[in-house]
Computed example of a mutant assay.
Amino acid sequence: MSASSILASLQSVRRKGALNCGLDLSRNKERKMNGIIYLVGLVVVILAVLSFFGLR
């Protein structure tokens, strides 16, 4: 293997790692957003049940 082919393969691995890191960040952001939506929905359901029984 020549030095230029090794350098090219290292650069491609580095680029793929950077792309995966970006995808991981967007997945974490999406997971956090889904958690917030779930929590808000849960609070709404609890308030609806409490108001149905007249406890709110």
Score class of each variant (00 low, 15 high):
1 M>F: 11
1 M>E: 13
1 M>I: 14
2 S>R: 09
3 A>E: 15
3 A>S: 11
3 A>Q: 12
5 S>G: 08
6 I>G: 12
6 I>N: 14
6 I>D: 15
7 L>Y: 14
7 L>W: 06
7 L>E: 11
8 A>S: 07
9 S>N: 13
10 L>D: 01
10 L>V: 14
12 S>I: 10
12 S>D: 04
12 S>N: 10
12 S>C: 00
12 S>E: 09
12 S>Y: 07
13 V>Q: 10
13 V>H: 08
14 R>F: 05
14 R>E: 06
14 R>H: 10
15 R>W: 05
15 R>P: 04
15 R>L: 09
15 R>V: 13
15 R>Q: 11
15 R>K: 07
15 R>E: 09
16 K>M: 05
16 K>W: 05
16 K>G: 07
16 K>H: 07
16 K>R: 13
17 G>F: 06
17 G>Q: 13
18 A>D: 15
19 L>S: 12
19 L>H: 08
19 L>I: 11
19 L>V: 12
19 L>T: 15
20 N>P: 00
20 N>K: 14
20 N>R: 12
21 C>K: 13
21 C>H: 13
22 G>S: 06
22 G>L: 05
22 G>K: 04
23 L>M: 09
23 L>E: 15
24 D>L: 06
24 D>C: 05
24 D>W: 09
25 L>C: 06
25 L>N: 14
25 L>T: 14
26 S>H: 14
26 S>G: 05
26 S>V: 13
26 S>T: 15
27 R>P: 04
27 R>C: 06
27 R>D: 08
27 R>T: 11
27 R>L: 05
28 N>D: 11
28 N>S: 03
28 N>E: 12
28 N>K: 10
29 K>I: 02
30 E>M: 03
30 E>I: 01
30 E>L: 03
30 E>H: 08
30 E>R: 07
32 K>H: 12
33 M>V: 03
33 M>C: 00
35 G>N: 02
35 G>I: 00
35 G>M: 01
36 I>S: 03
36 I>K: 07
38 Y>M: 12
38 Y>G: 06
38 Y>C: 04
39 L>Q: 10
39 L>K: 07
40 V>N: 02
40 V>Y: 11
40 V>S: 07
40 V>M: 07
40 V>A: 11
40 V>D: 03
40 V>P: 01
40 V>W: 07
41 G>M: 02
42 L>P: 00
42 L>V: 14
43 V>E: 04
43 V>H: 07
43 V>I: 15
43 V>N: 06
44 V>N: 10
45 V>D: 02
45 V>N: 02
45 V>F: 04
45 V>P: 02
46 I>V: 09
47 L>C: 09
48 A>V: 01
48 A>L: 02
48 A>Y: 05
49 V>N: 04
50 L>S: 01
50 L>T: 01
51 S>M: 03
51 S>R: 02
52 F>I: 01
52 F>S: 01
53 F>R: 02
53 F>L: 00
53 F>W: 01
54 G>F: 01
54 G>L: 03
54 G>T: 04
54 G>H: 00
54 G>V: 03
55 L>S: 04
55 L>V: 03
55 L>Y: 06
55 L>F: 06
55 L>G: 00
55 L>T: 04
56 R>I: 15
